[in-house]
């Protein structure tokens, strides 16, 4: 009965493809999210998810509904916005939040305007995703970007850790901190773009960030946080797709809602630094 509820929806091919794609993104995205959280760049991910929309829309305007064109447009726009966000953060010495809000409002408005000028694109699908859209091409896009992002993270892991922990040391030993930061941002953009077909541009960052934010309630060390974030994201993908199927919701919001629920549960009841932990430690002390 319960097995039927949790596994039944995957009798359909498009649900299996969506599940496989979301699992792939669950393995690649949340580790990047953990670094975004630790580097205090959670806001940057917000700017990115809005920033890629105009790129996808322009790609669609040029290449029709080809995933390749839309993905490439989104990737280029995402990189441009990442560069802009990095420049703003440096130029404002860390007080970039107002400028970030300006950037993503403009990007969102521009994206919506371009989409409405282009015939044949459903804005809601672009923003919030649709599992029905996960055909073989979309699955290859998701799995391909996830694989590339995962390999890329493995390559830049050590410099990224050092650049996060002690950027001055990396510069002093001639390690080119800026280049590693850029490579990291490119991987983040890659993952957000990879998720847009199934989850939409607005929601695909959710699968990257929410498990990463929740992970600190499960593990103290970096490797443990990465593992916890991946596990939570896999769970959110699976239960979210079931919810999307049963309640007839778009996939993106369903997955992000489940991931949000897991985050709230971790925040309240997780084994580390949760509200429950803090209360019980106060009572014993």
């Amino acid at each position: 009965m319960i097995a039927d509820l949790l596994l039944g929806p995957f009798a359909f091919g498009f649900m299996r493809r969506a599940l496989a794609g979301c699992f792939a993104l669950s393995v690649a995205g949340p580790p990047l999210g953990v670094f975004l959280v630790l580097r205090r760049m959670a806001l940057t991910s917000d700017v990115l998810q809005h920033g890629i929309l105009p790129g996808i829309a322009i790609g669609a305007a040029f290449g029709g509904l080809s995933l390749g064109f839309m993905g490439a447009g989104g990737f280029i726009a995402g990189l441009a916005v990442a560069l802009l966000a990095g420049w703003l953060a440096r130029a404002t010495a860390g007080r970039e939040d107002a400028q970030f809000a300006g950037v993503y409002l403009i990007a969102l408005a521009a994206g919506v305007a371009i989409v409405s000028m282009t015939r044949g694109i459903d804005l809601a699908h672009l923003l919030f995703g649709s599992v029905m859209a996960v055909d073989n091409a979309a699955l290859i896009l998701m799995a391909g970007t996830a694989s590339a992002a995962l390999l890329g993270l493995a390559v830049i892991w050590r410099p990224l850790v050092l650049e996060s922990f002690d950027p001055g040391f990396l510069r002093a030993v001639g390690g080119h901190g800026g280049a590693w930061h850029l490579a990291f941002m490119a991987l983040v953009v890659l993952c957000v773009v990879g998720g847009f077909a199934a989850m939409g541009t607005l929601m695909s960052v959710g699968l990257m960030m929410l498990p990463a934010v929740a992970a600190r309630h499960w593990a103290a060390g970096l490797a443990g946080q990465v593992r916890a974030a991946v596990a939570l994201a896999v769970l959110a993908s699976w239960l979210g797709l079931v919810l999307s199927f049963d309640a007839d919701l778009p996939a993106g919001p369903a997955i992000v809602l489940v991931a949000g629920g897991l985050w709230l549960a971790s925040l309240s009841l997780g084994p580390r630094e949760s509200l429950w932990r803090r209360r019980s430690s106060r009572r014993t002390s």
Binding site: R158, S164, G168, F169, G221
Partner: peptide
């Protein structure tokens, strides 16, 4: 260079062994 400790992110979840081993970067 031994920096002033304020220039490092001491809340970053890296183990002592890893932080020390990174001295081998050069």
């Amino acid at each position: 260079l031994l920096p002033q400790s304020g220039s490092l992110d001491r809340s970053f979840p890296i183990t002592c062994a890893d932080a020390v081993a990174l001295g081998g970067w050069p």
